[in-house]
Amino acid sequence: MFQYEKTLQYPVKIARPNARLAKMIITQLGGPNGEAGAAMRYLNQRYTMPLRELQGLLTDIGTEELSHMEMIAAIVYQLTKGLTPEQLEAQGFASYFVDHTTGIYPIAASGVPFSAETFQSTGDVLADLHEDLAAEQKARLTYDNILRLADDPDVRDAIRFLREREIVHYQRFGEGLRLIQEKLAQTTHPHNPYACNPSFDQSCLRRRNR
């Protein structure tokens, strides 16, 4: 069960609307490296994780990604609020405006709508955790690129916070990977981590006799 807390994880207070910036930043809501994909990836992968620690980690990081979705949406919302149709058009926002007005719709910067094809849930713990490590790096580099292009200090402040969280998540996923690798090394096949899939094969994590 999820509960709502009526506050952003980190404040978003943008003084100057800027639709050009909004069109770029919305990619972290609905784009291939974005927060919606992150939340869906972790919250769907967690069910077949073979360790309680990993189920907990994916639940807690997945939940934080929902808070990040909300922050990105808040940034886009504030960046497009109060502009006239003429201003929106002049700032390159007409193609979004014609379908969505200033409603929040998850798309990539290129305009491609959010798709589950941007992430995987493989039912294989090693493949999933490696995907998660890569996903955090992809989100980090997207924030780096946003920071190369965005000069608004209010926007940069919130983006920097989100970028830093990707690095923390990457660290924690690395520790998660180490936890399952240590468990696999204690099984009947200590030198072959691919002997079985602990997310699927029931007896995979059975410890070897000493």
């Binding site: 994880q9 620690e53 980690l57 807690d60 990081i61 934080e64 923390v168 924690r172 520790e175 998660g176």
Partner: peptide, 9 residues
Amino acid sequence: RDLALYLDT
């Protein structure tokens, strides 16, 4: 939140 992730691992 940050400590929770750390405590998870």
